[in-house]
């Protein structure tokens, strides 16, 4: 039984078929890439897995739980975390708070415990604070813990988004174009980081990326989407030599 099992996933936006008959089986520990031209439906697949949209058709099973119809926060609590193609940090909040918010589902105290500052609240808050700071330290954001998130340089904002996702303690991490807008030096750092967190937190990762260097460099298996259809699947070498993939990309380049 795979960790994540997606069968016949299809999604329409009105008349537009954004994803069609998408399949995916993920074994624990895998690092799988999804590539495809703009508008291929990659982000939509993430949105369907994480409950942002409800699929028109298809089933998504995660460790035996059916995810279709669940709210996003419930899905995240089951152990799936994600980042966003365009950074979506809580801009006006501190770096520490950004990470602590991701502890929401794990806090067990109620409103009354909080407002009256009962011992349980004090204890859990101290624990949350410490764990969040530990994670920030580990991710190399210790100096910036009290900064406002929007004041971080771009590369660190990306890093914070990953840290925030990790704070939900996921088993499966979905990264949506983490290298977007980065320079070659930052990209190399990012690749190293992805592999490091994968080891350190024992993660299964799905990675959407336009930077071929990243995908070909670290993914074991790649799926290629075009106009919502899966047009190829295989190892990086297989994908690089697949005529349909080349056509899809050449077709795009001709337009650009």
């Amino acid at each position: 039984m795979p960790m994540l099992r997606i069968r016949g996933l299809t999604h329409y936006f009105g008349g537009l078929r954004a994803v069609h008959d998408f399949h995916l089986d993920l074994e624990p520990g895998e690092l799988v890439g999804i590539i495809g031209p703009n508008g291929a439906g990659k982000t939509t697949v993430f949105n369907l897995i994480t409950g942002v949209y409800r699929p028109t058709e298809g089933e998504i099973l995660f460790n035996g739980h059916n995810l279709v119809g669940k709210r996003s926060d419930q899905i995240v609590s089951l152990g799936i975390a994600r980042t966003f193609q365009t950074i979506r940090l809580f801009k006006n909040l501190s770096v520490l708070d950004n990470v602590r918010i991701a502890h929401f589902a794990r806090a067990s105290y109620g409103v009354l415990t909080a407002v009256f500052r009962l011992p349980k609240y004090v204890r859990e808050e101290a624990e949350t604070r410490e764990r969040a700071l530990e994670l920030l330290e580990l991710m190399g954001l210790s100096e910036q813990a009290t900064w406002v998130a929007s004041s971080l340089p771009y590369g660190l904002q990306r890093r914070l988004e990953i840290a925030r996702a990790l704070a939900t303690e996921p088993r499966l991490l979905l990264l949506d174009e983490p290298a977007a807008g980065m320079n070659p030096g930052e990209i190399a750092e990012l690749m190293e980081l992805i592999q490091w967190i994968r080891q350190r937190f024992d993660l299964t990762i799905v990675l959407i990326e336009h930077q071929m260097r990243v995908v070909m460099g670290i993914c074991e298996r790649i799926k290629v989407l075009d106009f919502g259809e899966t047009i190829a699947e295989g190892t990086p070498v297989e994908i690089q030599n697949n005529p349909r993939v080349i056509e899809a990309y050449l077709g795009e380049e001709a337009v650009v």
Partner: peptide, 15 residues
């Protein structure tokens, strides 16, 4: 606060 900042992101970090 996270709802003020970005409601969708907030539900996607377990809120």
């Amino acid at each position: 606060l996270s709802i003020r900042e970005d409601e969708i992101a907030s539900s996607l970090v377990s809120v």
